[in-house]
Amino acid sequence: MRALPPTPVVDRAASPPVDAPERELDWLEMMPKDELAALERGDGPEVEHTGNRRMPQFGTFRTVDAVLGRAVRLPGYVVPLANAQDGRLTEFLFVPYYGACIHVPPPPPNQIVHVRLAQPITMPDMYSPFFLAGTLGAERTDDALAGSAYTMHDAQLRPYEP
């Protein structure tokens, strides 16, 4: 895996005050406006449900400056990457919808958060939604499943409660 800093997109209008409490972040706030517009136009690849190979990932590693370094929580799903010897989870991708990175194209890199946990946790139910809480950072990670543009520092996985 390679970790490089993605190019941030400056969007000061959406920046909360630095001392703001943890807030729920919408996944679409993590995409530069031009990329969001392209996605809404349907510029991504068509989904193919044949074969057993991962579809190519579309999108870029560009991040949005306004969401970086903020205490946030994101709703989403866990895609396990690595476990400790006892089977507890140590590293995962956090994605906005169930089934991402399986047979459909993975979300764009700026819609995936790469998480390395300081302390392993019991393997969560991959079918259940969670909140990922912590401080969002920009770090490019290339993995066999998908690339990600974001990382989460001091990450905590919490049960999803609407």
Rank of each mutant, 00 (worst) to 15 (best):
D143K: 14
D86L: 06
E139L: 10
A118S: 14
I121Q: 01
A71L: 09
K33H: 14
E48M: 04
E35H: 07
F92H: 08
N110R: 02
D86H: 15
K33Q: 09
L157R: 02
A118V: 10
A144M: 12
V10W: 07
A100L: 05
A84M: 08
A71T: 00
T122F: 10
M126E: 11
M123Y: 06
V64F: 04
M126P: 11
E40N: 15
V79T: 12
Q119P: 10
P75C: 04
P32S: 06
D143W: 13
T151N: 08
I102L: 15
V47A: 01
I102Q: 14
A37K: 06
A155I: 04
A84Q: 06
A84S: 14
A37V: 10
D154V: 11
Q57I: 02
C101S: 05
C101E: 01
T7C: 14
E22A: 03
P6R: 04
Q111R: 08
A37L: 10
R54K: 11
R53P: 12
R53G: 13
S128E: 10
L136A: 02
G42R: 07
F92V: 12
T141N: 14
D142P: 06
D34I: 08
V67A: 04
D143G: 09
E40S: 14
G87I: 08
V9R: 14
A13M: 02
L157P: 10
G99W: 04
P105C: 01
V78P: 10
K33C: 12
I121Y: 07
G69F: 03
A82R: 11
E139R: 12
A20P: 01
